[in-house]
Amino acid sequence: MSNPSAITALFIVLEKAVTTALRYDPGTQAQLAKLAGQTLLIDCSRPAQKMYIQFGAADITLAGHYEDDVSATLSGSGADIAKLLFGDQHSLYGSGVSISGNAGVLAQLQGLAGQLDIDWEMALADLIGTLPAHTLANSLRTASGWGRERAQGAERLVREYLAEESSAVLGRSEFALFVDDIDNTRLALDRLGARIARLRARQDHKDH
């Protein structure tokens, strides 16, 4: 059996992280209130651990032990469950995860996880004050925009070099032309095959 002290400590850390994140995303927090009173059991097979998520009006409580009825149970490996909850997959098919109980709880939770939009500037402001937080956030936004532009520029340069200068790979337009040519050739061959078949049929008819 897993160490209750360590598991409890982990749950406290997760709970605090989620509660703090929700405080800086009032939209998601308001949506979460719709789940208030529901309990989701995550029955993880690898690592073997049960985690009960009890939804409150503005927070969640995590527990390893719970004796009331649960709204839904999600079973699978930890990696598969995380992929399902936080990834783009919207179907359980092929996910390695099974659900019993009210699947609507899972759908709502998945939606919430997908739309989580934390106001980092507000979180920073609570730590260092409004003005320094705004200045820092602006700098970070500028740096991040500059970084994104440079990354996109570098990608474009590499693409052009490979396609135009070194001719190591085909450009996108050349490839499209090539594919069109193949399509046209295939159509012409199909027509030619059909004509040959028709001529052969006519010839056979004359012979008889």
């Binding site: 032990h65 719970y66 004796e67 009331d68």
Partner: peptide, 17 residues
């Protein structure tokens, strides 16, 4: 601070509602 973890686990196991 670990006494808080021990107490929290006790509350979970109590199944008080």
């Amino acid at each position: 601070g670990v006494h808080r973890l021990w107490k929290r686990y006790t509350i979970e196991k109590s199944a008080v509602r």
